[in-house]
Amino acid sequence: MNAMTDKPSSQPQNLRTLSYSEAIREAMAIAMEADPTVILMGEDIGVYGGAFQVTLDLVDRFGTDRVMDTPISELGGAGVAVGAALTGLKPIFEFQFSDFAMLAMEQIVNQAAKLRYMLGGEASVPVVFRLPAGSGTGAAAQHSQSIEAWFGHVPGLKVLQPATPEDAKGMLLAALADPDPVMIFEHKLLYKMKGHVPEGSYLTPVGKALVRREGTDVTIVAGSIMLHRALEAAEQLTKDGINAEVIDLRCIRPIDHETILASVRKTGKLMVVYEGVKAFGVGAEISAMVAESDAFDFLDAPILRLGAADAPVPYNPDLERASVPQVDSIEAAARRLTRREV
């Protein structure tokens, strides 16, 4: 099956395909055409096209007033986006790497996330932060992190992680339609992956996970690039007669409890795969959520978390690969889980 499409069996042939980055760029262009208050801000997003070429030629189409290169000032730049969102613009702010969002935590967490609440519902901050994330590029510890779970801890934010070009476009358009601050973690290794992307404007629902592969023996929850690794592992598992259900965790906040719980009630086994550090991560939240629910009674094996090693992301390529879940480690873990060897 083609891991890049939602429902391969139901889709006709010869559908238009775009890369993940092209899909994001198309979403931005559609939004900017439709709404003059949408602006792009970020470091080197103009003629340079962004560090990952996502904004590529948008400055030629929309000009420097709407595709604004910011100084290397993540805190200030993010704060300008927050202030602009508070007063009538809809900024899409690109962090060059998600790691750099740590320089702007004040504005994201203390300001953007809390303004509506602190002001008793009398303010709206419709800002979108785009964050290239993840390892696998040899960029080492300060350019390879997966920190999406940090923001899952912050009421007021919405945290998305598209795994496919179709979702990358639909989620960005949904984020722009959302009156609250939205953070979109885009995996750097997915930027060049191609997949079907519908024409025109459409919104991927925020807060909904998606069963990408139906199965009966084990539930594997995985988002972003881990979805693809989990789907590949699931194919391998069929050789042993193991039929895994794979859920695309498209949204970390709000999290889609019901889709996960329904799957666990069916399979009785849960594995959560994510690229962030294993401890205190997405896996902990999902495991606890299942343990606190009626689905707990359906479990017939311990819950398994597969996350990054308890270390910064290393430079050496073999170490880097070993530090985060890969197809083989997901497959091996699922095998152990289904044999109750955990």
């Binding site: 208050t37 602006i39 007033d65 709407r66 805190l75 200030g76 730049g77 993010a78 704060g79 300008v80 986006a81 927050v82 202030g83 602009a84 969102a85 508070l86 007063t87 009538g88 613009l89 900024p91 004040e106 504005q107 203390n110 300001q111």
Partner: peptide, 15 residues
């Protein structure tokens, strides 16, 4: 905290 936000509000006015 308000300094970048003020600049953002001024950016809105200009845009």
């Amino acid at each position: 905290g308000g300094l970048p936000i003020a600049v953002g509000a001024a950016l809105s006015a200009k845009r």
